[in-house]
Design a protein around this nucleic acid. Sequence first.
DNA 1: TAATCCCGTTTGGTATTGTCGAACAAAAGC
DNA 2: GCTTTTGTTCGACAATACCAAACGGGATTA
Lengths: 270, 270
Amino acid sequence: MSTPETTVVRNGRIQSVDRASGILRALATGTPTLGVTEIADRIGLAKPTVYGLLRTLEHNGLVRQDPDSGKYSLGPAVLQLGNAYLAGSELRTRSMLRAAALARQVNEAVWVGVLTESDVMVVHHEFRPDDVVQILEVGATIPWHACALGHAIAAHIDDVTLRMLMSAPLRPLTGRTHTTKAALTRVLSKARVNGFAVENQESNVGEGGIAAPILDRHGVAAGSVGVVGPTERVLTAAATSVLSRAVVDTARAISRDMSGRRMAMSPDER
Amino acid sequence: MSTPETTVVRNGRIQSVDRASGILRALATGTPTLGVTEIADRIGLAKPTVYGLLRTLEHNGLVRQDPDSGKYSLGPAVLQLGNAYLAGSELRTRSMLRAAALARQVNEAVWVGVLTESDVMVVHHEFRPDDVVQILEVGATIPWHACALGHAIAAHIDDVTLRMLMSAPLRPLTGRTHTTKAALTRVLSKARVNGFAVENQESNVGEGGIAAPILDRHGVAAGSVGVVGPTERVLTAAATSVLSRAVVDTARAISRDMSGRRMAMSPDER
DNA sequence: TAATCCCGTTTGGTATTGTCGAACAAAAGC
DNA sequence: GCTTTTGTTCGACAATACCAAACGGGATTA
């Protein structure tokens, strides 16, 4: 019994892999290129430890070292992985055709998103047909509480995940961002009643969105689909009425496709 | 006789991180969703080992487990990483403006690529202005020996990398793909003389491309930029003459930008 | 020019840590 | 019903990853 009780954590996870992931995350946020010492300080590990992890990540192409400065940044392999994720994403694959149809129908940009941690990540972006120059937003993340895509998902998620979402910091992005649990709870119950969520300049001033959940066979959200655009085009009473119907129909169709066309129709079955 | 024959490799890399990377690679190639047993078989590890790695990767969002089938696939975090790679890529950032200008000038699609392993990965794709519907190719990879982007890079790379490229399997993609070292050596020396590389249906029937290297301050290729399009548009004698000049000029301009003083950013550079 | 700082890198010894055989429960297939 | 295969748990062994201290080189300072 000479060993001091250093709380042996038995979570079954591999320490070094956790740490390697931490390095990738550090390189992905903020400064795109960091030195060994900076990373070691940021993660709170010894320099040689980080060095070994970096060498390994570099050998796998996940990280690359600038030959001149010696500093490290993310490597090309992570982009390949991201591409493979998109290619293999069933949600995305099943959404693409219907998202394209929706974009043509309503002449607006269409986004498909999934939940990751506390953000919604855009996994598909169908351009607005009329616009010439648009920025591709695939891979971008938006705080769940500040966008219609996030509200649509959160309104149809399991309780434990919802609690996690609610307890995350609800940072305001604009003056209109909802930042209290109470306000968001109201937003979500409204979304549940309507079957779709509306966002009015809560993430970007002048922009709004309308989204509906894509549900799996158990009725929980696997993602969401929605339109985004300037408020004057998508959030007038007339536009919202038309758009919400189109978005809900699209989301329903994707949900049906995903659940496998086994049962023809049965709204909620347990 | 307790000498184990298992050659202890002392390469300074972290075993478990190497294995975790192998899992990600396995999930990224071919079947997008695999079970624990399949992965264990494919990598040649014990099932519990793979399980621990998967749990860790899942905890970091790099992998996700389908709740129904129990099988694993890549997680959303890898897409975030890919996005961060693009955002932080100096080559991409510095290429974008000039690639857009080139695309407008010659009215063709423009690609920017970097070398990864034995493939060229497209890190930027500027659409052809006239076309309406085009597939975004960012993140896609093409064997280096079958595209102008790859030839342009390989013609200006260090000897050890070139040897590695040449010794990789030179798989034919079309009937016109060069698959011998001799043929490729000729292609490369021609590219060196001309300052640009031309590809004629070596990766896709009916398509061709013209590319020039983006060189760092030491004169070795950091990537390449080029146009791609149907042979009848880009590979006629007249078109090639015009395009090659424009491509070379663009590549030179990007190279100059990159070799110039570092990115004008935070002044805390010491 | 010499001295100093800070960087990425190397080493080696220790005990923490990951590994894998065997066993488990629960589906899926027959 | 039975068998097979799946993802998962357990535990003991030793291989493995970790970190303190030291190294060498480039950049900045005196």
